[in-house]
Structures are given as C-alpha cells and as structure tokens.
Simulated scan of single mutants.
Amino acid sequence: MNTRTRAAIIGGIITSLVIAVFAISLNSNIFRQSNTQQNSIQNNVGITSKLKVVASFFPLYEFARNVGGGKAEVYSFLPIGNEPHSWEPSIQEIEQLKGTQLFIYNGAGMESYISKFMSSGEFSNMTFVKVTKGITLLKADAAEDDKEILAQGGMDPHVWNDPILAEQEVTNIKNAMKNVDPTNAQYYEDNANAYITKLNTLDNDIKTGLSHCKKDTFVSFHNAFNYFSNRYGVHDVWITGIAPEADVPPQDIQRVIQIAKDKDVKVIFSEDLVDPRLANTLADEVGAQVLVLSPLEGINQTEQQEEKTYLDKWYQNLHNLRMALECQ
C-alpha cells in the first residue's frame, strides 16, 4: 500500500468518526433544542408567529378557532371520527403537542389523560385552560359508568350543549389568549364578542323553535343533554349513561321502552359517532323512527370535508328535536 493510499484511508476514517460524534451530539440535544424552540415561541407570541393552540375535542376547537381567527393556529387533539369519553392519545399524538402554548380542555372528567399531562412536568411551557372554570356543574345522574368522571367528583361535563354556558367557555378561552398574547388582546376580544352574538342567536332560535310543541320528552342515546334540557324546559330520557360506550343493563333498556310507550315517543335518537343498532332495536320495539341527535363531541370525515361547524350541527339538532317533539 503506497503512502497516498494509506493517507486517503486514514482521512476517510477520521471523517467518519467526526460525523458519528456529531450525530450523537445532535441526538442528545434534540430534546433540549425542542425546549429552547418552545421557549422562543413562547417569548415571541404576537411578534413573529401565530399563537399555537390545541383544543381537546370538537366544540372547544370550534370556540377557540373562532376566537383565535387569523392570529392563532388551532387544531383538535381528538382525531376525526373518535368519541372523546374513552379516548387516549398515542405517543405520536403527544409528541405533536411540542411548541403548543395553550391546551384548552373541558374538565369534569371529560379528558381522562389531562391530569397525567399536567403532573408530568413535560409541558411546563404550555398553559392549560379549563373552560368550565366558573361554571356551576350539574351532578351526573349516572357517574358510575365512567370512572374518570366519577374520579373528578361525578359532575356532568356536557356544558357545551347549553349555548349560554358555551358563552362562558368562549369567554374563558378569550381571556387565556389575551393573557398569553396581549399584543392581540383587542382582536381576541372582538372575535369572542362576535361569536357570542351567534350563540345568543342560537339560544333565541332554540327557544322559539321549541316554544309550541305537542310533546316535552325525547329519548337521547347518552346522557349528554342535562344542561340543554334545564335551559329549555324539556325532558331527556337517555339510553346509556354519562358516556355512550357504557354497557346498558336490561332493566334500564326496559325502563326506557316503558317511558317511550307511556309518552308516545315517535323518535329514538342515535348519535353520529356510535353504533346505531341499540337505538334501532329500541325504535322497533316502540314503533318509532331513528334520527340523529349529536352531542357535538366530535365529527366524522364527511362532516370535516363539508366544514360543518358547532352552529351547523346544533341547528340540525334543533330540526330533529322539533320533529321528535312535534313542534309547530
């Protein structure tokens, strides 16, 4: 082997070693660089980038998207087509939270993973925003079918189905955005006021739409409409409990059948993200038809493509409720 060849080989070995050491150093610093980047994002809100916001599921995503407008990048943590009560995020989905400044969640046991996130220490640069803060929650009538809700005190989490209480949730989101991004505070204030006006219109339309009805009782799939029923003076009989995936004892099914017959119910409601077979069976038993009453906990792929909103889905709910209650 001549001197030139030996030198070339030695040079190649040295180059390879340098590259390997650099790669190891780079990998060991990825997490530290991620934290540095997150700190940088946090410090430059309103100056160089949009506010980065994650909402735990569909209605909160809708509220945050409308308040944040063009100043915020908002996405739903819950994947399309999933039902949030029993959903747990994957490692990949948790990784996507890096760089997020606001995590908006409902509370009252709706997000089973949230306490682990908050206590992990991995999200010290993220602000967690509980949108039910300041809202008087109702006791869940069937907390025993959802361990997480029971662990959180057995309160009903379905606040967003009352448009007036949804206004408070919007206000809590607005305040959080203003705190993190004070430069655009007036922008968030104006957007929140505009969206609250739409919620007020929805509230008035529901009151008008349900003001002259022959019936006052409807059968929903799961117990998601207590706040709604209290607001508008109707009665909800549910098939499952506070979570739609709960097993239903035979005696509870029989109870619903008997009430439906006594109240001459002609519509049994299913949901958009659950198997409709149980609703179909009950409808056959009482001679009723099946319609969808969405608890607005998520949307499917088709609805996403159609860009269906919280307001769109509630107006569809109102249409179906008017049919069920035989409103004029």
Rank of each mutant, 00 (worst) to 15 (best):
M1W: 10
N2R: 12
R4E: 11
R4D: 09
I13S: 04
I13Q: 06
I13R: 06
T15M: 13
S16Q: 07
V18S: 06
N27E: 13
I30V: 13
Q33S: 12
T36H: 02
Q37Y: 09
Q38S: 14
N39A: 14
N39S: 12
N39F: 01
N43L: 12
I47R: 13
T48C: 08
A55K: 03
P59M: 12
Y61S: 06
Y61L: 10
G68H: 01
A72L: 02
V74W: 00
Y75C: 00
G81K: 05
S86W: 03
Q92Y: 05
E95N: 14
G99Y: 01
L102N: 00
M110T: 00
Y113R: 00
S119R: 13
S119Y: 01
E122G: 09
M126V: 10
F128Q: 08
V131L: 11
L137C: 10
A140R: 04
A142V: 10
A142P: 01
A143G: 12
A143V: 08
E144N: 13
D146R: 04
K147E: 14
K147S: 15
E148F: 12
L150N: 09
W160D: 03
N161Q: 09
I164Q: 12
K174Q: 13
K174A: 07
K174E: 15
K178V: 00
K178S: 00
V180G: 02
P182I: 03
Y187V: 02
D190C: 04
N191V: 01
T197L: 14
L199C: 07
L199S: 04
D203Y: 06
D205V: 04
I206K: 07
K207M: 06
T208L: 11
C213I: 03
K214H: 11
D216W: 02
F221M: 04
N223L: 07
F225A: 02
N226K: 13
Y227T: 03
S229H: 09
S229N: 09
N230R: 13
R231K: 15
Y232N: 08
H235K: 14
I242C: 01
A246C: 07
V248Y: 02
V248W: 00
Q251K: 15
R255S: 06
R255T: 04
K261W: 08
D262N: 15
I268A: 10
S270H: 07
P276G: 09
L282D: 02
L282I: 15
A283P: 03
E285H: 07
E285G: 05
V286C: 09
V290Y: 00
V292M: 09
L293R: 00
P295G: 08
L296W: 01
E297I: 05
I299N: 03
Q301I: 11
E303I: 08
Q305L: 14
T309G: 12
T309F: 08
D312W: 10
L318D: 07
H319E: 14
N320K: 10
N320A: 12
R322L: 11
M323W: 07
